[in-house]
Design a protein around this nucleic acid. Sequence first.
DNA 1: ACGGGCGGGACTGCCCGTTGGT
DNA 2: ACCAACGGGCAGTCCCGCCCGT
Lengths: 219, 219, 219, 219
Amino acid sequence: MPTEARSREKESRPRDPPPIGLRERKRTRTRLMIQAEALRLFAAHGYAETTIEAIAEAAAISPRTFFRYFPSKEDVVLWDEYDPRLGELIEARPADEPPIESIRALIRETLSGLQRRDREQLLARVRLLSSVPELRARFFEAQSGGAKMISAALAPRPNLPDERQLRLTAAALSAVVTDAIGQWDEDDGKTDLIRLFDASVDDLIAGMRQLHSDATPTR
Amino acid sequence: MPTEARSREKESRPRDPPPIGLRERKRTRTRLMIQAEALRLFAAHGYAETTIEAIAEAAAISPRTFFRYFPSKEDVVLWDEYDPRLGELIEARPADEPPIESIRALIRETLSGLQRRDREQLLARVRLLSSVPELRARFFEAQSGGAKMISAALAPRPNLPDERQLRLTAAALSAVVTDAIGQWDEDDGKTDLIRLFDASVDDLIAGMRQLHSDATPTR
Amino acid sequence: MPTEARSREKESRPRDPPPIGLRERKRTRTRLMIQAEALRLFAAHGYAETTIEAIAEAAAISPRTFFRYFPSKEDVVLWDEYDPRLGELIEARPADEPPIESIRALIRETLSGLQRRDREQLLARVRLLSSVPELRARFFEAQSGGAKMISAALAPRPNLPDERQLRLTAAALSAVVTDAIGQWDEDDGKTDLIRLFDASVDDLIAGMRQLHSDATPTR
Amino acid sequence: MPTEARSREKESRPRDPPPIGLRERKRTRTRLMIQAEALRLFAAHGYAETTIEAIAEAAAISPRTFFRYFPSKEDVVLWDEYDPRLGELIEARPADEPPIESIRALIRETLSGLQRRDREQLLARVRLLSSVPELRARFFEAQSGGAKMISAALAPRPNLPDERQLRLTAAALSAVVTDAIGQWDEDDGKTDLIRLFDASVDDLIAGMRQLHSDATPTR
DNA sequence: ACGGGCGGGACTGCCCGTTGGT
DNA sequence: ACCAACGGGCAGTCCCGCCCGT
């Protein structure tokens, strides 16, 4: 669930080695705290019915400060602390792995990490994503952005035909993730997310096999 | 580009055969007029910089009336007059056609129709979708909704494994549409949209072939 | 005390003769009510210490509505109901009157009208103008705008040398008004405003006589 | 262009002869640098569109530090390094010069100094003053404050009728300055500012001659 | 159906006070 | 002592909802 980064360059500009880690860590802790309070209120009273002011009060901060940690109300649902790690994960992939398999592996790792800790909270977020249209929309956006980022990072030679193929496959796998999450939500998180994802990938493979590849032009 | 229907019940209320067509037609004309003015202003001053009030003034209506025709500012970009036709198109498909091929055919028909008339306006809308994150998000949402609707309509036996396969394939093809539109935008609409779509489908097929289907569990 | 008119054309566009007067009258009454509450709170707790929210609460409206009646917090002090009348007053001047005398007469009429009713409230506003820098600044702006408007309206042949002379004299008389108001404030409104204005005009005339008119270049 | 002094006490506190000049000089250099960056951004993107944060980034300081050098965003346009010199200039006037002529001479000297160096930058500032209402307002305020200061300094015997005369004349000449600057802006700085000022003074003198000085009371 | 009035909530920008680090 | 980061507060704008009269 990668969140868009608007103008975060300043924060990641590593000027002083010691404070950067510490400061960033502190920010992450605050973000987690705010998110926890927000999700609690959303579950109790609903997303639309919970105002920023209420969240701020619950988190013992001012409304103004809320927006310093999350650019919008939606982002408090979208954000998770593993987003920024994506870069490291990509670089950790073996160089000789086929890029498309790398994408699948990255997705599985991310899903697995998300599921492992905060399973309850993840379920709460997923429920919101499923039920609130604006959040669902933002989630699609984030997925798409993540797919684009991954495919760009893995494309050996940018702007060649290969990159489009990689990008499309990544987008398709993102759609599979979304669908798997939807299924996970529908059975209340009882099934393992990875299992749902794997099965859905197989289904998509089977589905795509039924499409012949020499398409005839329209009309 | 199917738009979500938030509170459409009121429109379908008057079940009188004669007026329904005429009234609906008049509404559509007004909608088209408002949309044209809005897109003109968006292109001139930017999406965020154009207020509903400015659109209303340009369209010679009151701000209040704007919301009678479009449920939100975003919808004035998302909406097009071919959306509601989707149902008819689905029913027009031959019964013996494989569902997955039906989806591809439906997409091609829709893209072709969109491209044929209002090419310039379509390009304006696409530019907005590409550049304004909130619109892009809503567009993904709409795409996803459309895919879900089509797959539900075409699934012979609902809630069986087959439906998931159909749904996933439809979602993947939606992602292809989005990517094709992105390419179309980048070369300023010079290439034929259908051609871009077909080529991208082939690319996706090729990409998916590189995924082996017996996935091993994570870690 | 003319207030700037940002985009008020819509309001003054007389579409339906009957409602326009009534509606506008109602708006004026509401504006007066809000202003009265605001001035009361400003006098009690100070300008900066009084929030829009407090004013809105005192006036039994929402903060949002406050901004429908006054474009900014400053305007609630600047505005008075005689501002829009200026146009009528200008046209009421005899055509054969020397324009510069017309300006003096207009100022005297306006001051007299302001002083006659709401003397206490006028004093309250003047006190704020004198003590709050931002309000003083806005007041100068409004004075200057009014002077420019009057001289433009009275200039027989626009863009001729005469217009500059008229404009400068109007600006100088505006400065006299400001000074007279300052004196009025300092002696707590005991002296008649018109008298202060007249005396100050005489003083300015005397002062200007001491300037020789063939200026020598600097250095 | 005298700027109001809000909280200048801190600067004048260190009465140590050696550091005062140096420190102050350094501060002035920083101020000039910030101002240059700000004016550049204002010209490029507009005043309202340029945030303090953007200025701070361009000047390589923190937003908080911006406010250490300028009390508000407006002041970055209003301020110029010649403001504080006004006191010296006043004292340099010959003691036997008529005060009113001293005022005129002071204005001419100041305008001449401003115009001589940074003509381009002065034009940029003037353009902003003309086009942004809030800046225009603050400029009037500053002008008025300067006039009051000069007249107070030159009045031989304070609080006598003479002082009012002096004050009013200074205010009128300030209005002339404002108008001359407006004319200068309109012809893009092609004409000499002093010439415009002198001609406008003559126009005002001529205009004031048309006012008879024995005003009849109102009503 | 249309217009208008009003309310409310998200969000931004300016500005200030404090703290901690150099 | 200067300065960066942080948190807070308020003005102001925009989208969008509801209710009323026509």
